[in-house]
Nucleic acid binder design. Structure first.
Lengths: 152, 152
DNA sequence: TTCCGATTGAGCAACATGCTCAGTCGATAC
DNA sequence: GTATCGACTGAGCATGTTGCTCAATCGGAA
């Protein structure tokens, strides 16, 4: 489980290129036997190298074209309650606890600017939240990529 | 291409649960014919509803257990050059252009705190970058999810 | 009604899967 | 040097899946 070797990474890269490729196709692409790929895939799956496939679904076609980050300042000691309440908002995609002055970085999607205003209000209304700073994403200037880390 | 219907969303949810499920298995799960699922899947694929599968790969098993957000203040007009330079850093996973006082929110992974210090230094050294504020992620308190948006 | 797109079930050849087994290879151990 | 180990390979086989086409059905919109 330590760290993945070159072969695992090549397999991940091949999967990234075509997430529904068959085992046979992957084996051919990597110049490996079918058996090896099957074993490696099973090991990757078991070791938790794959996060949920939800991460690879674009929210825009669902009708949520706008994305924003809400930096939340929380009254100390209330963090877990606050997280629980924020998690109840459907438009919240993800949230990270942070070191530093911002306690919580919340990633949200919304239908339009008005919708964002409403969601921000919902977060601000949570008991324990002191202040929020909302930044609208103007675009994913570097689209998520793992490539440079896989090519090593 | 407008917005996806109930059926598309159910299909996405089923895929999220098992990203390598066969078409037959998906059809069974949703109570649909194999043909329908095959047609829908092809349409989703063609319409760009799937982002790269890279997004569903956990960087931790690759040897990058730490994640951080670097808020970057950029001298105006230099944004595209700065983005280009930052994109050359392999540990940079993603970056969003933001409205507000922070111009760029950069998501990075690293091996340890020392590594983060180095990467932050690399970003700060980019010509056009005025200032950075780095926050270490203490955990993904709300793990990425689309579920609440799919269940509507 | 008439048309339309979406869905269905059937059928078929080609292919993929899951499994097992015996053989090969290189590294580390003794 | 040779024993042992884990990883990889190629073969085989029954069963399941894919990609495709077709004709039939259904409900909604013109």
């Amino acid at each position: 489980m330590s760290t993945l070797d070159q072969l695992d990474r090549a397999l991940l890269a091949a999967l990234a290129a075509d997430h529904r490729a068959t085992v046979v196709a992957l084996a051919e692409r990597l110049g490996l036997s079918r058996n090896t790929v099957q074993a490696r895939l099973a090991r990757l799956e078991a070791s938790g190298a794959f996060a949920s496939f939800e991460r690879a679904i674009d929210p825009a076609p669902l009708g949520y074209p706008l994305e924003a980050f809400v930096a939340v300042h929380v009254r100390q000691k209330r963090l877990s309650e606050v997280v629980e309440r924020i998690a109840a908002i459907p438009e919240v995609l993800q949230a990270h606890g942070l070191s530093g002055s911002v306690d919580l970085l919340v990633r949200v999607v919304c239908r339009d600017a008005h919708d964002l205003f409403r969601i921000d209000g919902e977060i601000l209304a949570v008991d324990g939240v002191e202040r929020t700073e909302t930044s609208l994403s103007m675009g994913e200037l570097i689209p998520y990529r793992l490539g440079p880390l896989l090519d090593r």
